[in-house]
Every structure is written in C-alpha cells, then in structure tokens.
Simulated scan of single mutants.
Amino acid sequence: MRRGLRIAFFGSSLVSAWWNGAATYYRGLIRALHTRGHRVTFYEPYACERQAHRDLADPAWARVVVYSVQDTDRLTDCLEEAWGSDVVVKASGVGAFDALLEAQVLELRRPGTQVVFWDVDAPATLERVAKDATDPFRALIPRYDHILTSGGGAPVVNAYRELGAQRCVPIYNALDPATHHPVPPDARFEGDLSFLGNRQPDREVRVEGFFLKAATLLPRARMLLGGSGWEDRALPANVRRLGHVYTQDHNALNCSARAVLNIHRDSMARFGFSPATRVFEAAGAGACLITDAFEGVEQFLEPGREVLVARSGEEVAEHVERLTPKDAWRMGRAALRRVLAEHTYVHRAVQVEAELGFHTPSTAAMAPGRM
C-alpha cells in the first residue's frame, strides 16, 4: 500500500482552544488525515496563554512540538526538522513569527515537497493585504504551491487568484463525529437560545444586532452567552454569562438549549461561503441551529428544514418565539443527517488528498458517524 504523506504543520495550537477558533478545524482535519495513513507533526508557539489553558493532551494521531516565542533558535530547529517533509503547511494566524514563517517555509521546497499556505481566516487576510500594498505576504502568495482556505468560496478563490496564487481551494469547516455528537441535556446550559463566541471587535456589533437585540425583544426568554471577553459588557437581564466554555462542554451546551445561534464575524459575512466551526458542531450534536444569513448557506444546510436563517435580531426573536421543542428536535436531526452524509472531516481530508495529488484506493473511513 502506498505510504502516507509526512506533513509538517505550523499553526496556532492543536492542544488548546483558548482564544483559538481554529482548534476544532485543526483537530478534525488532522485526525482524519491520520486515519487515512498520513503523519502530521504540528508545530505551535507557546503564546497567548494557550498552554496554560490546554484542553487536549498530546494526541495519538499527531506529534505536537511546542516552541518558545522568546527563542528564535528553537523555531529554526523546528524548520530544520520539517525539511524533507512531503508537505509543509504554514497556517494563518499562528500568533508568533507569522511573517518569518510565511517566508521561511518557502525555503523548505525541494523536489517532492509541496508548500501550502492554509488560511483559516481568508476574509480577514484578504482585507488586510488589500488595504496595504506593502504587506510582505502579498509578494509571497504566488510562490506557494497551494492556498487552502477554511471558507470563502468563489469570492476568496477569485481574490487569491488576482493576487497571483497558483492554486486556491476551499477546504471548509466540518464535523468530527468522534468529538461532536448528541449527548443528554445538561441543566447548566438549559435555556431558549445559546450563543458561543469570544468578544471580538469585528463580531461585537453583529452580536448586539442578532443576539442581544433578540434578548431584549424576548424578555421572558432564557438566553445564554458563552465565550471570553464579555465579563464587563452590559447585558439584558435575561442573558446569563457562561464565560469560556471548554470544548469538552460544547456538546452539552449545544444539546441543552432549545436553539443555538451562530453569528459570523464581519468579514466572513461579507465574503459568504464561510460557515463557522460552530455550525457543524451544533449540527453534529443534533441541535436546532439559527444562523445569521450568509451567501452560500444552502451549500451546507437547507434553510427551513435543516437550519433557520435570520437577517436581523427581530427575525432571530421570531424564530425563537415560534419554535416548538418538537420542531427544534426535527430540525436538529435533519441537520445531523446532512452533515454526517456530506460534511465530515473525512470528506474534507479526501479533498486535501486530491488537491495534493495523493489518492488512496479506499474510502472506507468515510462511513457515517453516530446519530
């Protein structure tokens, strides 16, 4: 049987979801690649207090190497170790040495080695380079063998091609049914509507418009707000703060409220085709999902049958007010069936293999997960 790929992956963190929205994406994809015979070494910096808030022990399906942000020699050692890999990946938003890594991974190219820039926030990256013609990453884009993105669809692909990208392919967020699945409700998270997301400048206005507005319109509804950064934010009386919700509690959170709300950041909403990991986490738990409207939503879930779509806080409130527990259960189960059939990380891993020109004879690992 053909040998799997040896992949060196420079990203933000595999072992901590603390201020690290890409953690679920990395874990799902890398675990799926491992099940298909590939070997991944994940290099991550000791940054942003992530190591102090680890929520995953070093996994059996990847080798994790942590390097100090105070020691460039250690980073050099990591780059030297990555030499000779079949694939070298630099992800966006590592959080330390980003510009250095973007240039240095390209020096690892040799016959038999492909170098990939994996953009886990392409709308933000593209808006950044569009505003600054001197951004050093602009000149590097044409040198990468592949640009892979976690979202964005045709608008992102076209934008990267205009910047000279050789290849740009979206590898969307998805579901890992081994980690996100239905569980019994948990009294800690009971309510009518929950939203989980860290407080960020490019999301806060939309949270006000979709979540807090709905809470104001439904004063008797029980609303739950999870995520870091909301501690000093004034909230309606019917909104309960949860603080940071660790990944081991995401299933319980998604399975306990009558509905779960997804709100995109500004740039993701503008580009469209950018479903957040929360969309698939909620669907994988069989939750009834309400999402802010975004172009391309029907590519992932069918509005009205598998997901409820809202264009304002008023529409969020209307959905919650009309939603019966029976209807919520039906919609959640329909979403679960859809994501298991089409949107697991094994499906995405097969896409990655095809993009890299690696084909395995069996797709047995694509069997659907639990329901």
Rank of each mutant, 00 (worst) to 15 (best):
E314M: 03
P177M: 09
K326E: 15
T41A: 06
H250K: 00
T363S: 11
A349W: 10
R330N: 10
R338S: 12
I147P: 04
R199G: 00
S312R: 01
F195N: 07
A234M: 15
L108G: 09
H180M: 14
R143C: 15
W61S: 11
G152H: 10
A285Q: 02
A154D: 14
R222I: 05
R50C: 03
R338M: 07
A349Y: 12
A122R: 04
Q104V: 04
Q351A: 15
D145R: 01
A215M: 07
R270E: 12
F273L: 05
V129R: 03
Q114P: 02
A174L: 09
R138K: 13
A8S: 15
E355Q: 14
H343A: 09
R27I: 09
A282C: 14
S68M: 01
A159D: 12
R240G: 11
V94T: 13
L101P: 03
Y46L: 09
R265P: 00
A133Y: 02
R203N: 05
D77H: 08
Q248H: 15
H250P: 00
V352L: 12
P123Y: 09
V66F: 02
G191P: 05
C168T: 06
F280C: 00
L212R: 10
W230T: 02
P123K: 06
A62P: 04
V105R: 00
P123G: 03
E231A: 15
R143W: 15
D192M: 06
A8N: 01
S312Y: 01
A96R: 00
R337D: 13
A317S: 12
R241Q: 08
D73G: 05
R222H: 13
G164A: 01
G209Y: 08
P177E: 07
G152I: 12
A47K: 08
E314H: 11
W118F: 15
F210I: 01
F42K: 00
D77C: 07
C168S: 07
H53F: 15
E321T: 08
D98C: 08
E295F: 05
V205D: 15
Y43H: 01
E80M: 08
R265C: 06
Y345G: 01
Q51H: 08
T179A: 13
R138Q: 10
L14I: 09
K213D: 11
R322H: 10
L56T: 07
E162M: 09
R161F: 11
P182R: 10
G227D: 07
